[in-house]
Amino acid sequence: MTKTAVSTTINGDAAEFLCETGETLLDVLRDRLDLTGSKEGCGTGDCGACSVMLDGRLVCSCLVLGVEAQGRAVETIEGMAEGETLHPLQQKFLEHAALQCGVCTPGFLVAAKALLEVNDDPSESQVRYWLAGNLCRCTGYDKIVRAVLDTAKDMRSARA
């Protein structure tokens, strides 16, 4: 099958890959670029486990074609920590025990980071609705919501 060459930026670095036109961005990330942090829970955009940022917009990478990454910037869970320093959300997820099995965690972190970039003082309800596109079956969301609210609070006081 003929493949298309794609040039893109992933987590700040230039990246090139060949993919079939029907391949999703998620397939490309996982199978061609070994970035397996984004997970496939459904393949239909319902679970959010494959959440990534595409040109600053939160998307399900299973609903984006690999070829659509041409000339754009992709951010994945692998780019969230800076070297050995975890992003505050990653740290708070650990402190609040906001994960059990952890398979939904990358998607939640990417989505929560996107929330805090547009709203640094969300209400509990705003957090719950923003994260309604990410499914977690282990935690009942309680500790996830607390972790996000606590991160927002810390980030605000760090700025104040």
Binding site: R30, D31, L35, T36, G37, S38, K39, E40, T76, I77, E78, M80, A81, L86, Q90, F93, L94, E95, A97, L99, G102, V103, T105, P106, L109
Partner: peptide, 23 residues
């Protein structure tokens, strides 16, 4: 007590390897 889980960093950074993550 409530220490951080030992597999935590792997799971918040995407490094943890689940069933479909190996080739």
């Amino acid at each position: 007590t409530r220490p951080l889980r030992p597999d935590g960093v792997d799971k918040v950074t995407g490094r943890a390897r689940f069933g479909a993550d190996i080739s």
